[in-house]
C-alpha cells in the first residue's frame, strides 16, 4: 500500500526542507500524478512554511514527534484535554484530509510522517541528546538506544493506548514505528520488548 516510485522515495528520504522543496516542485512536474500531488504540497506547507514569517523554515511535524511524547507524559490528568490537543495537532497536520485523496493520500501522509520521524531519529544522534546529571554526562550507545525506543513508544503506541486514539493515530504510529525499525537493526526487537513490558 505504501510503495511508490524511486523518485518519490528520493523525496521522502531527503531531510533538508530546502532540498525537499526543490524535489517536490520537480517531481510534481515530471512524475505522473497519482492524484495526491496537491495534498503533498499542502503537507509541505503545513509542515515547513511559516505564513507569518515566510523566510523562516520550520518543521512542525518534527516538533509534533516531541510534542506527542510530552502529551503522553502529561495525559495522566485531564485526559480529555490531552485527547483534544492530540486531535487538534493531527488536524493541523492534515491527517483528516488524507482520506479525501484515497490510497494515494494515505500514502503521502504516511511518508511525510515517516520522513519527520526519520529526522527526529537523526537528532537523537546529536551529542546533546540523553545527557544525564544536568547535562554534564553524555550517555553511552546502549542507554541512548533504549531512550530512543522509549521516546518512540511514547509518541506512538503509548499515546494511542493512553488516549484511546488507535484509529486516529493508525497512520502516524505505523510511519513512526517503521522509521524507527529502519534506523537500527535491533530496533524492532527492542520496541516489541518495550511494548510487552508496558502493556496495561
Amino acid at each position: 500500500m505504501f510503495e511508490q516510485s524511486a523518485r518519490w522515495n528520493e523525496y521522502y528520504r531527503e531531510l533538508e526542507p530546502a532540498r525537499r522543496r526543490e524535489l517536490l516542485d520537480q517531481l510534481c512536474m515530471t512524475e505522473p500524478d497519482d492524484g495526491a500531488n496537491d495534498y503533498r504540497r499542502m503537507l509541505f506547507r503545513a509542515r515547513h512554511v511559516d505564513e507569518k514569517q515566510p523566510g523562516r523554515v520550520v518543521d512542525r511535524f518534527l516538533f509534533n514527534c516531541l510534542n506527542f511524547a510530552q502529551i503522553w507524559s502529561s495525559a495522566k490528568w485531564f485526559r480529555k484535554y490531552a485527547r483534544r490537543e492530540t486531535l487538534q495537532t493531527l488536524d493541523a497536520m492534515l491527517a483528516g484530509r488524507a482520506g479525501e485523496y484515497g490510497e494515494a493520500g494515505e500514502r503521502a501522509f504516511y511518508w511525510e510522517i515517516r520522513n519527520a520521524a526519520a529526522r527526529y531519529l537523526k537528532t537523537c544522534e546529536s551529542s546533546g541528546y540523553n545527557r544525564s546529571l544536568f547535562g554534564m554526562i553524555a550517555s553511552g550507545d546502549e542507554s541512548r538506544a533504549e531512550r530512543v525506543c522509549r521516546d518512540v513508544w511514547r509518541m506512538s503506541e503509548g499515546l494511542a493506548e493512553r488516549l484511546d486514539l488507535r484509529g486516529q493515530l493508525r497512520l502516524w504510529n505505523r510511519a513512526v514505528q517503521d522509521a524507527y525499525f529502519m534506523s537500527d537493526p535491533g530496533a524492532q526487537r527492542r520496541f516489541e520488548e518495550y511494548c510487552e513490558k508496558n502493556q496495561s
Binding site: D50, R119, Y129
Partner: peptide, 9 residues
Amino acid sequence: NREAVRLSG
C-alpha cells in the same frame, strides 16, 4: 531533545 526543537524552528 534540544536539537529536534531547534530544527523545528
